[in-house]
Design a protein around this nucleic acid. Sequence first.
DNA 1: GGGGGATCGTTGAATCTGCAACGACCCGAT
DNA 2: ATCGGGTCGTTGCAGATTCAACGATCCCCC
Lengths: 156, 156
Amino acid sequence: MSTSVSEVHWLTAEQQEHWRAFLVGTARLNEALGRQLERDSDLSLSEYEVLVRLSEAEGRTLRMSLLADGLAHSRSRITHTVRRLEAAGLVRREACAADGRGVNCTMTDAGYARLESAAPGHVTAVRTHLVDVLTDDQLRALGEAMSAVRDALTPA
Amino acid sequence: MSTSVSEVHWLTAEQQEHWRAFLVGTARLNEALGRQLERDSDLSLSEYEVLVRLSEAEGRTLRMSLLADGLAHSRSRITHTVRRLEAAGLVRREACAADGRGVNCTMTDAGYARLESAAPGHVTAVRTHLVDVLTDDQLRALGEAMSAVRDALTPA
DNA sequence: GGGGGATCGTTGAATCTGCAACGACCCGAT
DNA sequence: ATCGGGTCGTTGCAGATTCAACGATCCCCC
């Protein structure tokens, strides 16, 4: 693309190259990780992420809004994901005592067991396709760069 | 997660931190870019990406399979995306002369005009949320890391 | 104590994507 | 020639995500 209106700062060739590597790399990575989880554990990536967050929380319980914010997923997406997890018996929902609007999501024992059986394969895939492909410095640089991106996009 | 079966190489705390920054950062970034495109240009990110690749191709034409491979999208996803673009008059499909199985996808003038009007806003968003948030070194490191990930996941 | 704006989570419809199966076609081996 | 495996792109459907709207609740402020 060229421009006749010259106010726009186009990307340099290298910047564009990096940006496209990012797009294609993330697409392939998500595809590979999602496929592995689905195949070996019959879980989607979002379901897995929800289970992980719950497993680390006090009492294996988290408010819906905290799940949504922590994972950067929309509230309705969390509602749908949790509904599926609940239908599978991996999670339970109950009203929040402190806040009448709130809903607490608790991981069941079955949910914990399911996560335990899924985690090794998933972590191995993350290693194979990401961690082991990069040097320690590269992974740290990647993490720091994406932290900056994340923080710059923290909802007002 | 802890482990009783000790064969699994779990991630260190820092590795996990980097990995989660990556997950959340990409989620927020894709969400912000997609929302901007949808709002200002009524295009999805995939539609935009297809138009960009076509705009750079010889005769503004590309085989469906090249679009799919270049963007790391599934073939059926490309079929669906191109069908929508064609319905909007931004793209035209015709049989490939050299290969009876193939389909050539050509960007129309309307498609090029649409891309021209969408590109400034999109590039500005990429700058705002990614490029301007990072130092040149960070962006290069990000690009190189994701290139390695991409190459490691090149389909056999 | 009672608005009024904001937050929380859900819902149903619309949209997007993946999956499995398919027909058409290519090409090398026979 | 043709057979067979492989590639190409599409299709219908199921699954996942977004979107807009909603009721319920909270909390600040008058």
